[in-house]
Amino acid sequence: MKLLAERRRHPMALVVLLLLGLLLTGGAYAVFTGNSSASAQEYTASDVEEGEKLFVTNCATCHGMSAEGTENGPSLVGVGAAAVDFQVGTGRMPLQMSGPQAQVKEPQFNEEETSQLAAYVASLGPGPAVPEDEYLDTSQGDAAAGGGLFRTNCAMCHNVVGSGGALTRGKYAPNLSEVSEKHLYEAMQTGPQNMPIFNDANLTPEQKRDVITYVREISETPSPGGAKLGSLGPVAEGLFVWFFGLAAVIGMTVWLSARPK
């Protein structure tokens, strides 16, 4: 302490102080802004190697031998492990057939193969990684805050309770009630098909967790008012009334006016 007090008016003190300050703020900046969803999972060299083999045999037709993209499929350089985990994990890729958008089907690869494919694609260029479990834990999320974010950012396409809805020219926003927490996160992070990307600056990982919590909460809460009819609003309810309600009214009218035998 005495030493410090003696030297504090030394000509170099200012320089040292400045350096210290710069280092501190720079370090803190790196700590706080470091890509918060960076590499939740470490991939080994053999994962990448196996992934490349799988890629060449299953994906290269459309995406090119080194994932550089062709006329039939986009480049995968820099899409990150999250995009692969979402597209392959939900069965959207490999694509069943070309059409307005990729269809969900039974996943074609098991978890290990999916992760190897993800490792290979992640090795091609930096991109969003598979999210950490911390951000998928809905017990830590705030469903009310998530509801606000969902209604602002998601509800216009996915419907206010996540039942999905139609887009232009045969495309649609899917129902979210059966989608896993991880895939919900990855969809927000990578923007599959025509969905916009919600990067960490737009929706922070904590906010993404709130959104996921809201989706879970809303799809698990039964409706006190009776059958939800898919929560599709006036379309489903109108159809029900049109076919069943009107049929009942017509049937009663016919019965009322019929002569008894």
Binding site: M156, C157, G165, L167, T168, R169, K171, A173, G191, Q193, N194, M195, P196, I197
Partner: peptide, 18 residues
Amino acid sequence: PVALYEHQTHHLLCPCHQ
């Protein structure tokens, strides 16, 4: 509110009357 943005086609769709 028109906010159904498709980031590949760059179409913005209004949910009320398309």
